[in-house]
């Protein structure tokens, strides 16, 4: 995997020179970010308000504007923060795996585990982030390109032709499969992140007929 290691905490929304950065200020900013994520997950981007964010954080409206210009700014900060978290998780899950097939499954498993943990955020991001404005779309595209760039060498090692476009397709497939698991699938045996990853890897490399039988049959979905 060539995914880059990222160990930042998050992006800054305002130049830190505007006022002294103290631990308390950093904590406040973190509390606002966490509250904002929960509000966006619950209400969606368009229905979320600064008032609802500060209410959940237990802070004043004025406190919000010390750290973020507006709702878009806090959403953008979250978008970058969550992207960093996902990239980091996949990087470390695959970094020391020398076998490309196992590396592929490990990377996909990390993706599905992340989706499990942050499913509501991922759902909002997928379906609303792209519709806000081009800056949000650009960040999302950058994330997808980074993830695809991380998977492409592994696909190349596995003999996949045109690994770049194949990796882009793999990421798209994983995103759709994760959404299907959490928001469309009804019934069928429970699928863990590892099971999903194995099914995706098998489907991608060997075709649908190769998916292990532990996966739910087609008739169990409403997709």
């Amino acid at each position: 995997m060539s995914a880059t290691l990222v160990t930042d905490v998050s992006v800054t929304s305002r130049p830190i020179t505007e006022s002294p950065l103290t631990e308390r200020r950093w904590v406040r900013r973190g509390e606002l970010l966490e509250a904002a994520r929960r509000v966006f997950e619950r209400d969606g981007y368009h229905a979320a308000t600064v008032s609802s964010i500060v209410q959940l954080a237990g802070l004043s409206q004025g406190a919000f504007y010390l750290y973020f210009v507006d709702k878009k700014a806090v959403f953008a900060a979250l978008q970058e923060e969550m992207a960093t978290l996902l990239r980091r998780r996949i990087y470390w899950a695959t970094r020391d795996e020398s076998d490309p097939a196992r590396r592929l499954t490990a990377g996909l498993t990390a993706y599905f585990e992340f989706y499990d943990e942050y499913r509501n955020w991922m759902r909002r991001l997928t379906f609303e982030g792209l519709g806000i404005d081009e800056t949000f779309e650009a960040r999302q595209v950058q994330l997808y390109e980074t993830l695809a760039g991380g998977f492409a060498p592994t696909l190349g090692e596995l003999g996949v032709r045109a690994p770049a476009v194949s990796a882009a397709a793999l990421i798209g497939m994983a995103s759709q499969v994760a959404y299907w698991k959490h928001y469309q699938s009804q019934g069928g045996p429970p699928m863990t992140a590892t099971t999903l990853a194995q099914a995706c890897a098998s489907l991608f490399l060997h075709g649908a007929a190769s998916i292990p039988i532990s996966s739910p049959p087609e008739g169990d979905t409403n997709a």
């Binding site: 160990t7 905490v9 998050s10 631990e23 950093w26 904590v27 973190g30 509390e31 970010l33 966490e34 923060e81 978290l85 996902l86 990239r87 980091r88 998780r89 996949i90 990087y91 470390w92 899950a93 990390a110 992340f114």
Partner: peptide, 20 residues
């Protein structure tokens, strides 16, 4: 945190990560 399994913002607000 380093391997992406713990959200650093959560860790910081929960005082599991401190900066001096």
């Amino acid at each position: 945190i380093a391997t992406g399994k713990l959200n650093p913002v959560q860790a910081f607000t929960q005082q599991r990560l401190k900066v001096k």
